[in-house]
Design a binder for these strands. Structure first.
Length: 434
RNA sequence: GGCGCGUUCGUCUAGUGGCCUAGGACACUGGGUUUUCAUCCCAGGAAUCGCGGGUUCGACUCCCGCACGCGCUACCA
């Protein structure tokens, strides 16, 4: 009778900066693997390099993870508080003659005979590296803190980590880890080395590729579900190739063997599309709430709900809401160049505007969509102007923009009086806008 | 340099020897719906499967070599 060891995974970043968007994938896969197996997902901060520590980094990582909903079952633990434990383990190896001291540091005597071979989950193959290539390495630095290579093994073992999920860059140092496991007589975990996410020029993903910290995506108005969904798909294909899936579906369908082996390129365009999908999937109430939370200093928060149905299909990120709708509560800025983009009525726009104003003033109040449309169609016919063009001129006169939510609905939010006033002002200043 | 890993449309990918004259999604182009934009619907272009050798009746799929890319080569992680 075999038995299944409990699945325990961890996300173990070092707090040397803000949580990078690429790291979301690593955390997500670890999380999915744990949840799928009713296991445990641990958060561990590897803060052993005191020189590279960045203030606020740990908080940013914890915050981002929580925002994404990648809830950890244990931690966060900080390696800096576990110095004693590493020291004790170093002493064991020292006593066994498997380590030695030099220049205030404790070094591991790396075996240099034979070959280190292990089963790699990604790609389902064995990786072998000649031990003759290896060298002794530092376990405890002269400042008393452990190195990554040492602390990671001690902690992963002590915390019962079953699957070590991390980036490919650690493949090269895996023989060191394995040697350590063997020196202690510990059972090896399963190694899952995730491919590196690259930027558009195929170099390691960095800021100039638009791969900002995950928290920047949050500030840009991306939704956690969309980010998770996009990052999930960047190195994993669910069965049947489904593109949009909930966390629950990811947990259900996730599989290590379906993780890709090659380095993907991060593509914001697809993330944008996906974010738009999630925005459209939300109920109006939900979107309203999200926008109200997101737009902390919005001038007319109570009116957002009214606008949401008009813009839901027009925004891809929460931040898109602002440029699309600010003319509703703030006086627009006009630019003659915008008027010049309206093809028809180019020569006598001012005259047409005056007619529009007159029509508006004669429209029985409260204005209703049907007669509004009827009146202006008639006016367009009378002036020999295309229907679409007269509405576009009204749009620009009212909003200063070529693209807005539906015209009549926008006008209703602005109000009849203010609409008339805006058109009057445009006529007054035409064509010399400030 | 050494070692390791990789290579299918612009991008993410499907593909495990015949179902592939290579499928999907994003993006792009054209059309329809629409008073703008978007949404939605339809259509289209887009990969000689990095290159060259094998193996096989047959290779995107297996093997070898090469090229290119990426990673590691720290008292960083």
């Amino acid at each position: 009778m075999g038995y299944m060891k409990q699945v325990v995974t961890r996300y173990a970043p070092s707090p040397t900066g803000l949580m990078h968007i690429g790291q979301v994938r690593t955390a997500l896969y670890s999380y999915l693997l744990a949840k799928q197996n009713n296991g445990k997902f641990i958060l561990r901060l590897e803060d052993t390099d005191r020189a590279r520590l960045v203030t606020g980094s740990a908080e940013n990582i914890i915050d981002t993870l929580a925002w994404l909903g990648l809830n950890w079952d244990e931690g966060p633990s900080y390696q800096s508080t576990r110095k004693q434990i590493y020291q004790e383990h170093a002493q064991i190896l020292l006593k066994q003659g498997k380590a030695f001291e030099k220049e205030g540091a404790i070094w591991f005597k790396m075996p240099t005979a034979g070959v280190t071979t292990w089963q790699e989950v990604i790609g389902d193959k064995q990786i072998s590296i000649e031990n003759s290539l290896q060298q002794d390495f530092v376990m405890i630095k002269s400042d008393g803190f452990p190195t990554y290579n040492f602390a990671v093994v001690i902690d992963d073992n002590l915390m019962g980590i079953s699957h070590v999920v991390r980036g490919v860059e650690f493949i090269s140092s895996t023989p060191k880890h394995i040697a350590l496991y063997q020196a202690f007589g510990w059972e090896l975990p399963i190694f899952v080395h995730l491919p590196l996410i690259l930027g558009s020029d195929k170099s390691k993903l960095s800021k100039r590729h638009g791969a900002k910290p995950a928290s920047d995506f949050r500030e840009d108005g991306y939704l956690p579900q969309a980010i998770l969904n996009y990052m999930a798909l960047i190195s994993w294909t669910p069965p049947e190739g489904k593109e949009i899936l909930t966390i629950a579906e990811m947990i259900k369908d996730f599989s290590l063997s379906a993780i890709h082996i090659n380095n993907p390129i991060f593509d914001v365009t697809k993330l944008d599309w996906m974010n738009g999908e999630y925005i459209r999937k939300m109920s109006d109430e939900e979107l309203t709430e999200k926008l109200q939370q997101f737009l902390t200093d919005h001038p007319a928060k109570e009116k957002i709900g009214q606008v949401v149905p008009l813009i839901k299909e027009r925004i891809k990120k929460l931040s898109d809401f602002v440029p699309l709708t600010d003319f509703l509560w703030e006086e627009p800025e006009y630019d003659l160049a915008i008027f010049e983009k309206i093809k028809v009525a180019q020569n006598n726009q001012l005259e047409v505007l005056k007619q529009i104003l007159e029509t508006l003033e004669n429209l029985t109040k409260p204005w209703d969509a049907k007669s509004f449309e009827q009146q202006f169609r008639q006016l367009a016919d009378k002036l020999g102007v295309k229907h679409a063009d007269i509405f576009q001129l009204i749009r620009v006169a009212v909003s200063g923009q070529l693209v807005t939510p539906p015209l009549f609905e926008s006008i209703q939010i602005i109000g009849e009086a203010k609409t008339v006033e805006r058109i009057r002002l445009v006529i007054q200043r035409y064509p010399n806008f400030p």
